[in-house]
Design a protein around this nucleic acid. Structure first.
Lengths: 209, 209, 209, 209
DNA sequence: TCTTAAACGAGACGGTACGTCTAGTCTTCTA
DNA sequence: TAGAAGACTAGACGTACCGTCTCGTTTAAGA
């Protein structure tokens, strides 16, 4: 009798999972093979064997397709050990992002999404909420805990500090004036924690060999 | 006789200065009034009363128009006093950029150009060579001099340090998660020079009150 | 085995009469209110609260819906008195059609169906068989009987004669260069029976005063 | 001084005659090879190697393309000898149209244009003004002259008479219930001039043998 | 003064992608 | 098993810009 339970839902034909995943794959493939300009709604539809009507029904713009494509394949870069020593935890977090940007298509995807965000506030908001903010929050939590433990100066500007760790990674991704090399995570962390001045070093972090 | 003199040449009608400046102005106005998507070659031509042929003759793409528009109105942000004390010089340089991004149309212009650079290597190269590199070089020179004077640790990674100063500004410009407020320049400089750790401070730079 | 009975069959749910009549009404209303272009399968389905699948199950195209809509509301224009004198019978038949075209939605419906018939042979065939042919046959019968009674010249081309009576009505309906006024039936009949030449008149039909 | 004469003219690149004629040809070819439904703006553009923008710039709809296609290839069917005897002139005029409809693509073109005219008043008006009216006027002139010469009854309805000559041709073209055979012109003319009644014939026109 | 040649405005051109629309088909649940 | 709901593929629609191409005009340097 009950019946009522939960899952009632859908009248009519349910959304096609085939279409959804084909679209996300097509978008990623097009991006990798032809750059951002190759990722047109037209091309996605053709490659995914999906009609444009379906495309526009579920995604309002190509940037939204790319956003979902990005999120659907990278959720794991927030998984770090927050109980590790501060410097180690920070380096670990930065390393994950740096390596992913350098070694997978997440790098170009992210760069193009930041670019798309300049013309579309929705993109910008989605990027912030679903990607940047979660990562910044972890870092902020790590730093705040260290302040409370007495490791860090209580007068520091947390938001600015977080940016001094992360911003260079995105900056290089977008401008390309310097590579995202392996030591970057440790260098950024060490220089920020210890400062650049002579004689301030604790010995914990001598960047770059 | 021959005339051989220098490079002077120009037979025919000389390039119209009216057209050039009308184009640059039109581009800036369109950007401000309608966002990057309003800056089409078509619209620039119409607004500047210039034919599209002329437009394409002198600028290969709309991004190049915007680039020149950017450069034609901001050359002065490199003019700082390099003989000032290190921290003062750095704060001064960062402040100039921060304020310009926040208070003039240079901010959106720059954001859109970085975005355009993702799809067009020419833009990226031009941005780097004509805007970013000159500024980075000044900062690198300041830091290197400080190292040589013994103020800064000789082991630091100069490129990374420069990015830790500048990148947060561009990062915030592009993502908008935090404002480009007035203290930012001092905060970034202080935190990087002195580090975040407790008890390392020389007293020279207590950011943020 | 059971069941076997006679030709009745109907397993399952019987066809919905509600759906059928709602569709025909919706089609007619749409035609009147918005012209032929408003009569889309989509719109019919929406207005009749009928699913598109049902629509396509019973009618292969929108023209077929309109055809059935036409036939379902006008069967009576063939009902004339064939025993009346020739000229009177012909005028009566033409008048019925002329008036119906002018005063009801049958006019635009017919015009649009003839138009649809240009692209769809099924429509053309259905129109001919279910509307035009029955009416032409009556007229042909009237004329042939008159020939046999000696009233009409035995050398006449019956098909052409019938067209000289009916075609002008459809021609004006479709092209609209002249109205379908009240005298038209008598004029067409009189001019054709008596000819245009001077001195041939029997006096029976002086069209238009 | 002189010079001033008449028309300034074209600024800018002049309209391409190649494009214009390619479009008109493509439309006609598509119609013949695939029927009216094959004549899409898309297909015309593709076949004529013309961009859709150009197409829409000069023709507001595909029906207008077809209209111009029709007019561009058939101007000559109005050229008859108006000084010939009445019946001869009428037969000649009807024959020209009948044969053209039967033997060239003008037939289907006209049929489709009449169809298109049901949904688009512009088409209908253009058809009337540029095709039908000029032909009707010639016929009306012929008949009126005959009335004035005393050959035809002064009481006849000229508009109706003209329709009794022409309408059957279009009626058959659109409905296809009877062919547009060679004798049609003479039959229609003879039957209308002389009437169908027995004993009225002058002997001048015994249609069909 | 006259010639010459480059730069100019206007604007038409072939293309490509856009976002919307309708046509028909297919899939699931309900009556 | 008919029907309602509604998601699906296919493809034409009309628009906007793109970057290129004539045109006829304007402007200065050179003959």
């Amino acid at each position: 009798m009950e019946e009522a339970v939960a899952g009632r839902a859908t009248r009519g034909r349910p959304r096609s999972e085939r279409a959804r995943s084909a679209v996300l794959e097509a978008a990623a493939e097009l991006l990798v093979s032809g750059g951002i300009d190759a990722v047109t709604m037209e091309a996605i539809a053709a490659r995914a064997q999906v009609s444009k009507a379906t495309l526009y029904k579920w995604w309002p713009s190509r940037a939204h397709v790319m956003l979902e494509s990005l999120f659907s394949r990278t959720r794991h870069t927030t998984e770090i050990d927050e109980s590790a020593p501060l410097e180690e935890a920070l380096v670990s977090q930065l390393s994950l992002v740096t390596r992913e940007f350098r070694e997978t298509e997440t790098g170009p995807l992210m760069a193009d999404l930041v670019a798309a965000g300049q013309a579309d506030p929705d993109i910008r908001a989605a990027l912030d909420e679903q990607w940047l903010r979660p990562r910044r929050q972890i870092t902020t939590r790590l730093l705040r805990a260290a302040v409370e433990r007495g490791e860090l100066d209580p007068g520091i500007d947390l938001a600015a500090a977080v940016d001094q760790l992360f911003a260079p990674v995105y900056y290089r991704l977008l401008l390309g004036h310097e590579p995202l090399h392996d030591d970057l995570a440790a260098t950024l962390t060490g220089q920020l924690l210890n400062g650049l001045r002579t004689g301030l070093r604790t010995g914990a972090a001598a960047p770059k060999g």
